[in-house]
Design a protein around this nucleic acid. Sequence first.
DNA 1: CGCGCCATTGAAAAACCTCAAGAGCTGTGG
DNA 2: CCACAGCTCTTGAGGTTTTTCAATGGCGCG
Lengths: 244, 244
Amino acid sequence: MPTPFLLKLEYGAGLTDQDRLVLERAVRDVRQFKPRHDLILEDDSPENVHVILEGFACRYKLLPDGTRQIMAYLVPGDCCDLHVPILSRIDHTIGTLTACKVALLPHTVIEDLTRQYPSITRALWWSTLADQGTLREWLVNMSRRPADKRTAHLLCELLVRLQAVGLATDNSFVLPLTQRQLADTLAMTGVHLNRIVRQLRVDGLITLKGHTVTIPDVERLKTFAEFNPNYLHLMQRRDEARQI
Amino acid sequence: MPTPFLLKLEYGAGLTDQDRLVLERAVRDVRQFKPRHDLILEDDSPENVHVILEGFACRYKLLPDGTRQIMAYLVPGDCCDLHVPILSRIDHTIGTLTACKVALLPHTVIEDLTRQYPSITRALWWSTLADQGTLREWLVNMSRRPADKRTAHLLCELLVRLQAVGLATDNSFVLPLTQRQLADTLAMTGVHLNRIVRQLRVDGLITLKGHTVTIPDVERLKTFAEFNPNYLHLMQRRDEARQI
DNA sequence: CGCGCCATTGAAAAACCTCAAGAGCTGTGG
DNA sequence: CCACAGCTCTTGAGGTTTTTCAATGGCGCG
């Protein structure tokens, strides 16, 4: 039941009942992966599109000094490697952060779908472009904002993205990552992130209980983080969009 | 005469003589822009694909504190906004850095081309995916590498990219940017970049004369910068690539 | 010639990292 | 059920990188 997947694609294009049915039937191969398991290695040329159904995964690169940079989170509903057959090989690694349930769709299936169903094509396109927009915003976030705003910005993004697939309430969500993993994302050391998180807590910007993040005043955090959700392209109404 | 454009697309797919002819004929509207001129504003939904023929342009975002982050360089041969009709609006700005000659191709023309010519479709796809790979590497570069390696890495990338379109020799190229523009790219202050450039010079890693960068020992600079050109996806041989 | 932008340098402050150590939590085996 | 190992979280102290503020000289262009 790829509910988050369908929920997410709906933002990219209005799906018909048939589209939804076809997409659900395309999900035949669902696998469970352990935390910290690499799904696709650098230099691979994988044969499947991966759709995350449960858990958190990420794209990352390892640097010669052993540090790693996480370049994208893949949360339920996200799919990756849509277009890899065009490139001879992948230039990064995709791996799970937590335990994950992942659907594998062979590229041939995707090609059949896009040949037959225009709104599915459009929705998959939209999904890649939204990912690209997110990547650009991450570049800005990681390279220009100080550590506290940077962290706050990531939390705002996760709130909105998880809300979009029904995995967050108005002001809270489960963030099943270690501080180390967050630090690998936010381009800082674990020690520094720890201090930043403490500061955000004493400032009342966030509350942590277990792995649940609660944001007492969402507007306040968004303002603090200079967060503008446009880049996620989740607001698009179907009728606003131009036809291909 | 969009030579760099054709040169670049050749890396993405083998083009037939007809492909080349069709592409050349598609370039009807060529315009000259001054330095620091915005081609596409945030929240626009532009009707043309822009192909840079001469000069340097960039994608950037402005931050509330007035700083800007350049997220990509667009050099001769690069094209942008291929897929914008899918998104209702653009989440960043595209502007020239130097004076630029730019070809404008209406989206309708692109759609006609991709409908009729599979290798053009493939080449344009490849171009977007290579851009994405570059963006990912920039995220790593700007957020993980120290200022000196970061700067060196950018120079290595420019050498390779400009070589690909016939605008660089074995070890040198013209970089018509100010230090301020480079600093906006490299996520540091102009003052700091200046010191870094001086250091790279005294270490003999680069030589500057006017706006010409010369790299006395390319391998040495690449090693220093931890530069691996894979992410540019310029090595792909046509026959290696899988069919769509 | 003079204005404005660019490059350059110095000094001090701020942000962030490294190293180090202790506390808390979790899962595992005896 | 307890002890222990391993990982995560937390905090301190000191060092490095980068920024900020400030000032100077160079260069092109009207």
